[in-house]
């Protein structure tokens, strides 16, 4: 069976950085992917390419029903949802109005959102614990609340594929857990899949069965978390010692030298 998204021989560069060279990636329905790598390796850039927002320089990206670059922006946004790392607070829009923006690619030019669209938006708000916030202006929200509104908009978009750039940013631990729970049920199903940029290896391990690692020099590793969660490989990817501690609940990852002042020297000498 073909994947929701297939990248073949994809090479992406930004400035002097080669993000990936000859990437072959197939995301099947039902899969949950973590995109991992150091700061500045181009994870966001790769995400923008996979979402069809940047023109590919070499290689192809296709969705189930055709190559990504041949689709209209609207058609693309019905198939791929993208959660940006940073977003604006808008010009006085309410939480509900913002989340309804997720229905935009599904609606005709002059159409208003109907009861069905409203119901989807309200379900998404409820899933993110934002029911009480419906009429609040975005400008009055905290960073974490704004992040949940943005995730609710992605849920409202109801796309087969969700690409999420650091979805857990600004969220406290309780909301991180709740959010992962919602993403795991709503964005991953027999028809849907997601790929998220994440920095916490423990989150990546428990939430994502598949990993895509970028080494910052164009090299990449794609596969199951079991095959890629080797501490030596991870230490090389992050240029920092990473320890893998086995517990009854599965492995726990921890960076070495978590002592103030110690981390800097350790970062220069990967094991």
């Amino acid at each position: 069976m073909s994947g929701l998204l297939e990248a073949r021989e994809l090479s992406v560069r930004i400035g002097d950085t080669t993000v990936c060279h000859g990437l072959d990636l197939t995301i099947h329905a039902g899969e949950s992917w973590a995109l991992l790598g150091r700061n500045g390796t181009g994870k966001t850039t790769l995400l923008l390419h996979l979402a069809g927002l940047l023109p590919t320089q070499a290689g192809t990206i296709s969705l189930v029903d055709g190559p990504l670059h041949a689709m209209t922006p609207r058609a693309r946004a019905r198939r791929v949802a993208l959660l940006l790392q940073h977003s604006g607070s808008g010009l006085g829009a309410s939480v509900l109005e913002t989340v309804l923006g997720g229905r935009h690619p599904h609606l005709a030019t002059l159409a208003w959102e109907g009861p069905a669209d409203l119901a989807i938006a309200r379900q998404s708000l409820a899933a993110m614990g934002l029911t009480e916030f419906e009429q609040r202006s975005l400008e009055t929200l905290s960073g974490g609340e704004l992040r949940r509104v943005e995730i609710a908009r992605v849920l409202t978009q109801q796309c087969p594929l969700s690409l999420l750039d650091e979805p857990l940013n600004h969220l406290d631990l309780a909301h991180q857990a709740a959010c992962l729970q919602v993403l795991g049920t709503q964005c991953v199903s027999p028809q849907r899949a997601m790929l998220m940029v994440v920095h916490d290896l423990n989150v990546a391990y428990h939430a994502c069965g598949r990993w895509l690692l970028l080494d910052g020099a164009g090299g990449w590793h794609a596969g199951t978390r079991e095959s890629l969660s080797d501490p030596q490989l991870l230490s090389r990817i992050y240029a920092h010692p990473i320890m893998r501690i086995e517990t009854a609940d599965g492995p726990v990852f921890q960076p070495g030298h978590l002592v103030p002042g110690g981390a800097v020297t350790a970062a220069r000498s990967p094991c």
Partner: peptide
């Protein structure tokens, strides 16, 4: 008008939601 609503949160966000 609806594109303007989305573009109020940035043109990249608008592009992500299918606006040319």
């Amino acid at each position: 008008a609806r594109e303007l609503n989305i573009a109020s949160q940035g043109l990249l966000q608008a592009a992500a939601l299918g606006v040319d």
